[in-house]
Design a protein around this nucleic acid. Structure first.
Lengths: 334, 334
DNA sequence: TAGTTTTACGTAACCGGTTACGTAAAACTA
DNA sequence: TAGTTTTACGTAACCGGTTACGTAAAACTA
């Protein structure tokens, strides 16, 4: 068996209270006792049980992160950022791959509830009422990462509408008039009846007097594959597109790939701009121009916010980060 | 405050033992009592504490996964596979991003030890003696994923030597004679004094009577960036290379990217073959030929093996998976 | 030096579950 | 119907820590 605090106490001829005090640097013991106990701890190779400690402390030093997709680069970069700040603070992170699936998500929430996590981050997840209600019951700090919600839950996100507007405007200013968009899953994107990135796209076209037609938008999911099938569908419907704005970079990568296989030169015959500016963009052929949403900063902010809430119980404000076009080589002037 | 089993018991006029029995489907109660208790559980919205349960059960339904790099696609795909089987089994996974850093790794191991995880998977990690010693003390099932070790720890991996041999042979049979290799971090790759993929590469050249020179191998790390700088260095040293074999696909992607920016057509001027066959390969321009190491299967096998060990305590055997060339468009006949 | 304060602990309850053991009542048996 | 078995629980100890409270001894004070 592995040793417990009692074994240490007995061997050191002190009480468990004293060992506990020493372990937690709480004072109330002599230097001599401290040395003696510390020696025995080392000798027995004793490690306190986080489980037992968690039971009394009501603190598990564990947080949960819900992600819709573990194979998406954006999500992975989020996870990376969160894990990094969690580790600095001494917390562990449990990853939950929901696949944007309602039932799975609820199951994960229950699991995390039972595990008594200290806090929760929902990345790129639309906060359904069902989730919100449950989270309220969990009584645990939650922050939304790259998502917006009308429920009173703090979020760290970019202004998707404006970012999409900026991206589209960029294409327009490069002289494009026949611009298609490939978007993600309609249902997952809706934040208050509107799909922000789609609306931003439409508004830019409208403001610059470019006629718009619903057939210019293709809806799929969010993966690279959806970019390749999306381009094919879009080009079937409207073959004279000169530029494509994609909901995210993964779709953008799919477009690049499909274009390559179709023999359509990018950017000579087709310009494409993505969103998020994931780190893969710059390694594409051609390097993919993208609207950066400062997602590294976003993940760290979200994590820091959550830990602040855990430690201080203060309500904290939302945060909307800037966006910025990162010009590379997938867009050319028309 | 949130309710405990005592609240439920009191309200139902039964003992906590009965509530516990009902919660765990252990029998020893009447249907009537069961219904009454279940109703009260629902009414109070009671969820048992996994922490308290873990304390007595010595089971936390949590496993740890150590990964060297959270932004690598291969690793992410591993993580995805592991998380998936863990969730099916009802376990949660704690991700630990070690960055292949010894001190960080040890710190993570201690953390996981304190958290009393049920099992541990080390992905793409060289098992140092220090780690091994600690893991032995943890007394927890461990499996190595995509790694080999001389310590008695089960591993699920591919035969790196042979896979590299096969990949190189493929290039040779396509008529290439001037073949370079871009490898990863020397220190991290050494398994018993040899770097398997490098040795496989060398052996293939040797067997086919192709003169070899150490300058044909470039060592970097494992990222895409190392592929781009690697190609530049390699081409500086030996400009007449017609093919490159890369340690992994990320490096391969870097080579593709660098080649594009250098104006070197792939595969017309330069053939490149990667390893691992990550899912991004097929979306590259051109799609990247790669030696598949069945890594999806690998991750699932590793996870299943670990859970089997958790549940049955039986020592289990290692597993070496097959490899296979996935031909795409980044290699041409010379 | 007698009284007071501080130090360095120990005792025991508690966190929220599980479970071995015991037992009254119900059901069964012959 | 008396004896035996089974059912349906309850009691209390335990898992491995933390901590409020109490106290003897040491240190201080006047």
């Amino acid at each position: 068996m592995t040793y417990t605090i009692k074994d240490v106490a007995k061997k050191a001829n002190v009480s468990t209270a004293t060992v506990s005090r020493i372990l937690n640097d709480q004072g109330g013991y002599s230097e001599k006792t401290k040395r003696k106990v510390l020696n025995i701890i080392q000798e027995l190779d004793y490690y306190p049980s986080g489980i037992a400690r968690g039971l009394t402390n009501k603190r598990t030093d564990t947080i949960g992160v819900l992600v819709p997709n573990l194979t998406s680069s954006l999500i992975t970069e989020f996870l990376n950022g969160i894990e990094s700040v969690a580790h600095k603070i001494g917390s562990s992170v449990i990853v939950c791959h929901t696949e944007s699936h309602g039932v799975k998500t609820m199951k994960y929430l229950q699991l995390l509830h039972e595990k008594r996590i200290d806090g929760l981050i929902l990345a790129s997840t639309v906060l359904k009422k069902e989730y919100y209600d449950y989270i309220v019951k969990m009584r645990v700090p939650v922050v939304l990462l790259s998502a917006y919600s009308e429920f009173p839950v703090p979020y760290i996100t970019a202004n998707d509408y404006e970012a999409a507007y900026t991206g589209t405007k960029y294409l327009i200013q490069k002289g494009h008039k026949d611009i298609g968009m490939i978007s993600g899953n309609k249902e997952e994107l809706i934040a208050g009846n509107l799909i922000p990135r789609v609306e931003g796209f439409k508004s830019a076209l409208f403001d610059y007097n470019i006629p718009f037609n619903e057939s210019y938008i293709e809806y799929g999911k969010f993966s690279i594959d959806d970019g390749v099938t999306g381009l094919k569908h879009l080009l079937n419907r409207v073959p004279d597109l000169t530029a494509i704005f994609t909901e995210n970079d993964e779709i953008g990568m799919g477009v690049l790939s499909a274009a390559y296989n179709l023999g359509i030169k990018v950017p000579e015959k087709l310009s494409v701009i993505g969103m998020d500016d994931i780190s893969l963009c710059k390694f594409m052929s051609p390097p993919l121009t993208s609207v950066s949403l400062s997602h590294n900063e976003m993940a760290e902010k979200a994590a820091n916010l959550m830990f602040k809430m855990i430690n201080s119980d203060t309500e904290v404000s939302n945060c909307i980060l800037d966006h910025q076009i990162i010009e590379r080589q997938s867009v050319r002037s028309q």
